[in-house]
Design a binder for these strands. Structure first.
Lengths: 136, 136, 136, 136
DNA sequence: GTGGTCTAGACCACG
DNA sequence: GTGGTCTAGACCACC
């Protein structure tokens, strides 16, 4: 277990974001335990065949978010106490994402029911994916 | 009636897209009726304090999408509503938007039910907002 | 293989549209295969001696149309072929092009048979040209 | 009979071009005979409810093309001898129009047969329209 | 007055 | 290196 990363270059999502995202999910689902060490920038860069700068950027984003902590000279470790967002902040972010999504999708001409149903299956799919990873 | 535009410069969403999106939503929800004239490029540019080119770019996107039509020398007018995209394309776009949204939001720690419920409210709000405007 | 671009400045068709059109045709006829990389904005701008913005505009149109896709930081690549527009929209666009063409050409005094025959040859030429290029 | 003009403002085709086009067709089909006088700019502008400048522009285009001739102080008359384009020029124009049309339409994904068939019906429709006018 | 095109040059995100 | 966004300012077609 630990961490299994995979990326797709032919995507509009930047590589560094794909990497950060997968670490975040691994932490959230417990596949990566608090205190566990993250693989080194160089190791990840070699494995994924990407520029080390790209990995470094993903990592620094995780540190900024409080998901990981740097122990100078030793490497990056999953944070013990994830102090992520305040309830208000979480709510604000959800609202913002909802607004952007709604605007985007209203224009396509789907009904409210269709959109809601599709979101439900999409979220279920993501959760299932995370479960799978956690049990690996 | 008509159109109330407002933008936020410190957003990841580019200005021209914010403008186009607001017009699109206004049209999709009926707040802006087919045949209605859009405010002139210069007027919008002045009101929002942005470069006319930025507004022009938003407008040309709307024209290419078939949301608005230019009458040479007279201005831009809301086009008759029509289904531009093929079913597959609409689905593709919905899926893409869902994926981005799901990634953004799962990480925040809401349950699936919470997210779905909030989306329902958000979509309803947009529809209601349109009604309101149409009856003003 | 690849792409040969050439433009004419004293044309009613804007530069950015000439560029986009040539890429579109190359893709539609198979001269440019899905997955292939497009020449960079700067390279094209230099080759054609136009402003990079003009090329960028052509490219962004192709992306919006789904003809090409951007891979952040790497460049533009030809997208998988897909049907973007609804049947009604395709028909609408064909009708519009036909109308403009007919008005333009009827006035020249050719017979219907002559015009139709010439169109057939022209279309065949485009298809043949693509074959040729694909086998180079 | 003489001339019956009608325009549509909600079109991408500029008004002055719509007007000029209708005069051209009327002359080509004999609805307007050589030597016949064209209605005055002011008369047309009033009838169509457009800016006189717009009509004047259409007329000046016709004069430039040799379709009409100005008799100073008396007005505009249909030219006796229409010396339009040389055979080479006609051919060149047809080719150019064909090229533009083909590029536009290839992208839409119709087959050659479909396009050719649609052109045939479109041209037939236009010819029928002209006949009708000539017999009014 | 309207929108549309093009140039020039700056700044940013991504790899 | 890649593309994307924005500004500034010019010029044109159309009404």
């Amino acid at each position: 277990m630990g961490l299994e990363l995979n990326i797709t270059t032919n995507s509009a999502v930047p590589l560094y974001r794909q990497i950060a995202e997968q670490v975040r999910v691994a932490v959230a689902t417990g596949a990566l335990a608090p205190g566990e060490q993250l693989p080194s920038v160089r190791a990840v860069a070699e494995q994924l065949v990407v520029n080390p700068n790209t990995v470094a950027r993903a990592y620094s984003e995780l540190v900024r978010e409080g998901v990981a902590e740097a122990q100078p000279g030793r490497g990056l470790f999953v944070a013990e106490r994830r102090t992520l967002y305040s309830p208000e902040e979480r709510d604000r972010r959800l609202s913002a994402a909802l607004d952007i999504f709604a605007r985007e999708v209203l224009f396509l001409g789907f009904t409210r029911e269709q959109i809601v149903a599709r979101l439900d299956t999409t979220l279920a799919k993501f959760e299932a994916g995370a479960e799978e990873k956690a049990h690996e």
